[in-house]
Structure formats: structure tokens, C-alpha cells
Design a protein around this nucleic acid. Structure first.
Length: 225
DNA sequence: GCGACAG
DNA sequence: ATCTTGTCGC
């Protein structure tokens, strides 16, 4: 897959990272997808046992056939600490490099983290979306900002995630009896589409298949690479 | 000053 | 994210 030239350097201080987020946030586009997605890329990372490197990977999920088509990965040195709100500066560089290895062009990229549901509206999914200039959505396992009511108990029940008076995401019950997932716009997609597709991608587990399979993939790789 | 805080 | 023992439920 061919990707655009980098929008900025990743070699920044946390202070500079915050200013970059403020500058990039207004570039996020919330437009409908060009077509109904078939190939959904799911991305995730895992740390090596020594905690010094990270494995970043993408798998491609065929939403029509319900099968995995491709899996690619890269290994890189950790160069940024985990700071709540600055996750993309730790994980995005490797995720973006791994995307170059994809042979199939995905219709959509799903990331393990938030998109617009971020204090400065530029979570991991949005940041990666801008760098790839592709549709992305964020699917996180827990809340970073905002507040919401408890969604109903049925699969598919969902409520809005509100932060500072803005609708920044949707809290979706992906399965009966489990904690809901947090879906938000990454880039070039609408919130309705993001929530609908994230749910359509779940196959009997709390986590949607693209992200779930990517997690399995990196977890298997971390010990042998 | 005191919590909250994606992965 | 990672580590980690027991425990609950199908």
C-alpha cells in the first residue's frame, strides 16, 4: 500500500505533541464512506517481553466472507512513553509503517483506541487516519474522556458519548453481558457508520474481529521476534 | 489541591 | 500494555 509523505516528525517532546494534536484536529473529515466496506483492516500492537520493542500489525478482515485475508507486521524500538492522551506518539509510527506492507487496499482501518473521543479530538485512530489519508475508526475498550449513560443490555444497544457538550463517540454493547466498547470517528467516516460497522464486525466476542484478530496476531509474535 | 487517565 | 491466582459459568 502506498502512503502519503509524513505530516510531521514523531521525534517530539510531550509538550510539542500536544500542540501538534491541536493543530491537526481540525483536519479530520467526518464524511460518509465512498462505498459499503468489504475489506476492514484491524490494527494492534504488543510489547516484546523485554519491554523495549513493539510489534505492530494489521490484519485484513473480509466482512462479506467473514474470513481473514492478510496479515503484516513490523518490529520497532519504543521511543515514546505511555502518556494518557498521547498514545498515538507511541503507537502510530509503527502502525503507519506496517500499513506500507499491505497488498490489499482496505476500505477502512479499525484501531484499538479512540479517534475523536479524545480531549483534543485527535486520538490514535484520527492521527493514523490523517497520516494514511484513509478512512479510520477508533474502537476502544475503555473511556478516555466524556460521559454517558449505561447502554441497554441487548447486543447493539448504544448511547452517545458526550464530552464538553460535543458528541464524540458511541458506547456500544457488542454482546450481551459484557462491558460496552467505545466507538468513535477516526477520519473520513461518520459516527453512524463507525458504530454500525464496528457492530457488524463483531462475531460472538466483545471485540470486533479485525481488532481482535490483530491482537491475537501480535500476541503470538511478541515472544518470537 | 484532588481525581481521572485509550494502550 | 504486561503480570498473575483464583474463580465463575457454559
Amino acid at each position: 500500500m502506498r502512503i502519503p509523505k509524513p505530516l510531521h516528525s514523531w521525534n517530539v517532546t510531550p509538550k510539542k505533541a500536544v500542540s501538534l494534536q491541536r493543530r491537526l484536529a481540525d483536519r479530520i473529515i467526518q464524511d460518509p464512506l465512498a462505498r459499503r466496506p468489504q475489506y476492514v483492516a484491524g490494527g494492534d500492537i504488543a510489547l516484546t517481553p523485554d519491554g523495549k520493542r513493539l510489534v505492530a500489525a494489521w490484519i485484513i478482515w473480509d466482512l462479506n466472507r467473514r474470513t481473514q485475508l492478510e496479515a503484516v507486521h513490523v518490529v520497532s524500538e519504543l521511543s515514546f512513553p505511555y502518556v494518557p492522551g498521547l498514545l498515538s506518539f507511541r503507537e502510530a509510527p509503527a502502525m503507519i509503517n506496517a500499513a506500507r506492507k499491505l497488498n490489499t487496499e482496505p476500505d477502512l482501518f479499525m484501531l484499538d483506541g479512540h479517534g475523536l473521543a479524545h480531549p483534543r479530538r485527535l486520538g490514535l485512530a484520527s492521527h493514523v487516519g490523517l497520516f494514511l489519508d484513509r478512512p479510520t475508526l477508533g474502537c476502544a475498550k475503555s473511556r478516555l474522556c466524556g460521559s454517558h449513560r449505561e447502554p441497554g443490555p441487548k447486543r447493539g444497544a448504544n448511547v452517545r458519548l458526550l464530552d464538553d457538550g460535543e458528541i464524540v463517540g458511541r458506547v456500544v454493547r457488542s454482546r450481551v453481558g459484557v462491558k460496552p466498547i467505545y466507538v468513535s470517528v477516526g477520519h473520513r467516516i461518520t459516527l453512524d457508520e463507525a458504530a454500525r460497522i464496528a457492530l457488524a464486525c463483531t462475531q460472538g466476542y466483545r471485540i470486533p474481529e479485525p481488532t481482535r484478530l490483530a491482537h491475537h496476531y501480535v500476541t503470538a509474535l511478541r515472544s518470537s521476534v
